[in-house]
Amino acid sequence: MAAKSISTLLEDVRLLSEEGHALVQAVRALVKQTFGTVDEEVKYGGILFAVDGVSFAGVFAYRQHVSLEFGQGAAITDPYGLLEGAGKGRRHLKLRGLSDLADKQVADYLPLALQAAKG
């Protein structure tokens, strides 16, 4: 059932933006490459990622960008100064193209986000 929900969401994202769809898929691939086994869940209009039951990030597609959200992002010591947001807990990276995966150091932020979520 979850796989169907994810595929349905991905088709909706594709209708919104082909580039956004490619970016969401690239984020998913990078998360899986980084952690191996990852649980995915459609929630809040995006795909949430969890490792060993710990939810640490989510990817959300918008018309002009894709947002990679970190639920405990405020607890991350931001090594590159790229995290956006000023709330009590969340931080995010706005991704506008595939090059942003490297330019915004996404692979480095993912383990930091998991560590922050574990507390």
Rank of each mutant, 00 (worst) to 15 (best):
S7V: 11
D12W: 05
M1R: 05
A2V: 14
A50Q: 00
Y109T: 06
R14C: 06
M1Y: 05
K94Q: 14
V38A: 00
A117E: 06
V42T: 14
D52Y: 05
E84A: 14
A61E: 02
G58H: 02
I76Q: 06
L112E: 03
G81H: 08
Q72C: 15
V42M: 01
V51P: 00
G45C: 10
L93G: 04
L23M: 14
L10N: 15
E41V: 10
T8N: 14
V38R: 02
I47H: 06
A61Y: 11
G45F: 13
K32V: 11
L112F: 03
F70W: 07
V31Y: 00
Y62I: 01
A61T: 01
L114Q: 01
S17Y: 12
L112T: 08
K104P: 02
E40N: 02
L16I: 14
E19L: 09
R63L: 12
D103G: 05
E40K: 05
L98A: 13
Q25P: 04
Y44P: 00
G53A: 05
V24H: 01
E11M: 06
A102G: 06
V38I: 07
G45Y: 07
G85R: 04
L15Y: 13
V13K: 08
E40R: 02
A117T: 09
T37Y: 05
L9H: 09
R91W: 06
E69I: 06
Y80A: 07
G45T: 11
F56P: 00
M1F: 04
D100E: 01
